[in-house]
Amino acid sequence: MSIITLDVRRSPLGRLNAVAKLTAALTIGIVLLLSIDPVSAGVSFALTCALLPFARLSFRDLWLRVWPIAASALIASLATALYGRESGSVYFEWGLLRISDGSLMLAGAIFLRVLAIAVPSVVLFATTDPTDLADALAQLVRLPARFVLGALAGLRLVGLLIDDWRELAMARRARGVADTGRIRRFAGQTFALFVLAIRRGTKLATAMEARGFGTRIRRTWARPSTLRAGDALLVLIAVAVAAASVTASVATGAWTPVTGL
């Protein structure tokens, strides 16, 4: 069962090759890691948001995927605002806590940078089927087939682990051993899930070995993975977004290389 909806699969981004999406996400992410300033991150984030309609992701689906990253970015920015580099006017000072113009600007830059890196990656991979990604990595990037197929099988089992966790919780509750001691209950249930995962993984490895997944003979693929003009266009758009963010940052004098911090 696919983890993406049919509407997302048929979207302009959903029809593109997984390797092209991976290349686009890496292009934007690597460029944004070269500097910590709010201008380049803001421009990249704004341009990425302008391209979101092509993914056909609902706001709810996007929020469910992004909110943990946004919460982490907010925590990191708050810590930076309190303990970051001091420069300009100081607005608050108490012990080690110090809020100044420099710390606030650095906090805003970090918050925007985390979102600017995370949102394109989340959107691109939310429109990618794991099987398509595995086919592309094995056929185009030439990664070892055993590694790719093993990773794909493990990814497919994530949903089963969630179902196992729920079944374990209901079974323990039905037996009357989940009414008290939340920490002890969580530890016991985690160990039970770990044992269950090992057993299922062993059975899956045996089944894959029996079906010839472990052979050293060069395998064939049911679905060929190819690059098309739309894939090249996506990479060019990613390069354009990265170039626009750097150009705007340099033009405004906000470019701050990581090595210069």
Rank of each mutant, 00 (worst) to 15 (best):
T27R: 02
I162D: 08
L155G: 14
P257R: 12
I198N: 04
T23Y: 05
S58F: 07
L115C: 06
V250I: 14
A197Q: 04
V8R: 01
V250Q: 09
L152Q: 12
R219D: 02
E93T: 13
T215D: 13
A138P: 02
T202A: 14
W67P: 01
A187K: 09
S87H: 11
E86R: 12
V114Y: 03
A229Q: 13
R65I: 04
V250L: 15
V235S: 03
A25L: 06
Q139G: 04
R9I: 00
E93F: 07
Q189E: 14
T128C: 05
S72K: 05
R156N: 09
M208L: 11
L137D: 01
A178W: 11
F191C: 11
A107G: 05
R199D: 10
A107K: 01
A24G: 06
F45P: 00
T23L: 15
G150V: 04
A243F: 11
A229L: 14
V123H: 01
E209T: 09
A222W: 14
S103R: 03
D164R: 09
L13A: 06
T206P: 01
A187V: 15
P130D: 07
P12H: 01
D135I: 03
A222C: 08
M170G: 03
L96H: 13
T252I: 07
A55H: 02
L261G: 04
A73E: 04
V43K: 00
R219S: 08
F111W: 12
L133E: 04
T27C: 12
R199E: 12
G108K: 04
A243M: 10
I75R: 03
R185P: 10
A153L: 07
T5W: 01
R15F: 04
G253T: 06
Y91E: 08
V241Q: 03
L97K: 02
L32T: 00
T48E: 02
L149D: 10
V141Q: 09
